[in-house]
Design a protein around this nucleic acid. Structure first.
Length: 431
RNA sequence: UCCGAAAUAGCUCAGCGGUAGAGCGGGUGGCUGUUAACCACUAGGUCGGGGGUUCGAAUCCCUCUUUCGGAGCCA
């Protein structure tokens, strides 16, 4: 008998098949047992009817518990009430392992309990949907980049120095070489790659020892950094926009069922696939002040400001040309205004906040050295980075996307902690 | 780190000075169409730890611990 996945069940109507999976829920009604079986690919209701089964098989079905692993044989049928829904008329039940009392019940649970049981929580349908969207977003990003001449260029996770300041690094002992740090961004290494491959990206975990406690922060998260030679500020934003719009389209096309499970507003997501707005930092501050914000020129945007800015906008908004004081040392000066840098942040609509930070990079040796000295950075540690401006420097730009932030937005969920299998937060490292 | 909230059955919570409660989950039984199924019965608690007030504390006060929400920083 053929073993099949539940997602393919429609192709096997009236043919006896074998399904291997777990019991999501079970209900009895006298001579009937209803088993919700899930197998990773999807779920189906299996029905054991006493008069049609051996006493022993029916008893086994009746004794199943939530999350037991089972091998069920049966015949797929069209559901008597719902068109396009299939159920399985059970012919055989083999218990692989009978689950003990399962901790996660059918009623609501608190976040502390669920996070402590994250290893089991991921089986729940919403978590299943989010993890599948994460998978889709991850590969959509790679697909777009691969199709646009970017090459995968993996940055190291163990690094001898900081990318942007030194207050938020996880520190560890590295043999006799002194301290090493967990990477908080692969960007500086990525800049070396463009001189070999032209356009490159990395995608992996990065670490920030910030004592942040919000629904948008993790201490370990996955970031995609992209970097391209000969690309300047305007084109950099164009690439970001095309990439994000490609991700939106891919998620809408491939994750319809997942979005339904999460009750995501798909129309809002589809509406974001249109020309993104662009605002300078100065314009953004003016706009926010006109809306009643107390924010001043020269300040960074707070969470409330980001929400206020995107309120009523169906599309993401680029904030570009930032005051140099509040942005990183490696960003290139705006040729039109020496006080500004050619950086851009992309703010997602619907209050999901910043999902991309990017910039054109400073490519002049002396200007860059000046910035680094002004910030009292240890120049000797960054000699390799400065070398890039000595040997065939080119205008170049890049950006970083926080995978979990993007998945939070796509999924329309409240908290970033559900977008990664095992979230790492300031007060949580188990399981 | 700062501000706020919470901790009672395995889970979600009610009880807020006078005998420890419900729903879900567990167990036993019933039901031929259930879909967070339903119905009956049943087991299950050092009320986060410590100290205090009181004739009497889950309840009031102090303290510690843990967690949650928010801020700052950022993706």
């Amino acid at each position: 008998m053929e073993q099949v996945l539940i997602k393919d069940i429609a192709q096997y109507v009236d043919k006896e098949v074998c399904l291997k999976g777990w019991v999501r829920n079970i209900r009895h009604s006298g001579k009937l047992v209803f088993i919700i079986l899930r197998d990773g690919s999807s779920e189906i209701q299996a029905i054991a009817f006493k008069p049609e089964l051996d006493e022993e098989v029916f008893e086994r079905a009746k004794r199943l518990t939530m999350e037991s692993s089972v091998i069920i044989t049966g015949t797929p049928k069209q559901h008597p009430k719902y068109e396009g829904v299939y159920e399985l008329a059970v012919t055989g039940v083999e218990v692989n392992q009978l689950s003990e009392e399962y901790p996660i019940g059918k009623k609501e649970h608190g976040p502390d309990f669920l996070l402590s049981n994250r290893h089991l929580w991921i089986r729940s349908s919403k978590q299943w949907a989010i993890l599948r969207i994460r998978h889709t977003v991850y590969f959509a990003i790679c697909e777009y980049l691969n199709n646009n001449d970017f090459f995968r260029f993996d940055s190291p996770i163990l690094t001898p120095n900081a990318c942007e300041g030194t207050t938020t690094l996880f520190e560890l002992d590295y043999f006799d070489e002194g301290k090493a740090y967990l990477s908080q961004s692969g960007q500086l290494y990525l800049e070396t790659g463009i001189m070999s491959l032209g356009r490159v990206y990395d995608f992996g975990p990065v670490f920030r020892a910030e004592r942040s406690k919000t629904r948008k922060h993790l201490t370990e998260f996955w970031m995609m950094d992209a970097e391209a030679a000969w690309v300047e500020h305007a084109e950099n934003m164009q690439i970001q926009e095309e990439l994000i719009r490609f991700v939106i389209r891919t998620v809408l096309a491939k994750c319809d069922k997942e979005l339904d499970i999460l009750e995501r507003d798909k129309a809002a997501l589809a509406a974001a696939d249109a020309q993104f707005k662009r605002m300078t930092h100065y314009e953004a501050i003016e706009y926010l002040r006109s809306k009643g914000s107390e924010i001043t020129h020269g300040s960074d945007l707070g969470a409330q400001d980001e929400a206020l800015l995107t309120e009523g906008s169906p599309v993401p908004i680029f904030i570009e040309k930032w005051p140099k004081e509040i942005k990183a040392f490696y960003m290139k000066r705006d040729p039109e205004n020496d006080n500004l840098v050619l950086g851009d942040d992309l703010i997602a609509p619907e209050g999901f906040g910043e999902i991309i930070g990017g910039s054109q990079r400073e490519d002049d040796y002396n200007v860059l050295l000046g910035r680094m000295e002004a910030e009292k950075m240890p120049i000797e540690d960054y000699q390799w980075f400065l070398d890039l401006r000595k040997y065939g420097s080119v205008p170049h730009s890049g950006f970083g996307i926080g995978l979990e932030r993007l998945v939070t937005w796509m999924s329309g969920i409240h908290h970033i902690r559900e977008t990664i299998p095992f979230p790492r937060m300031i007060y949580r490292i188990y399981p």
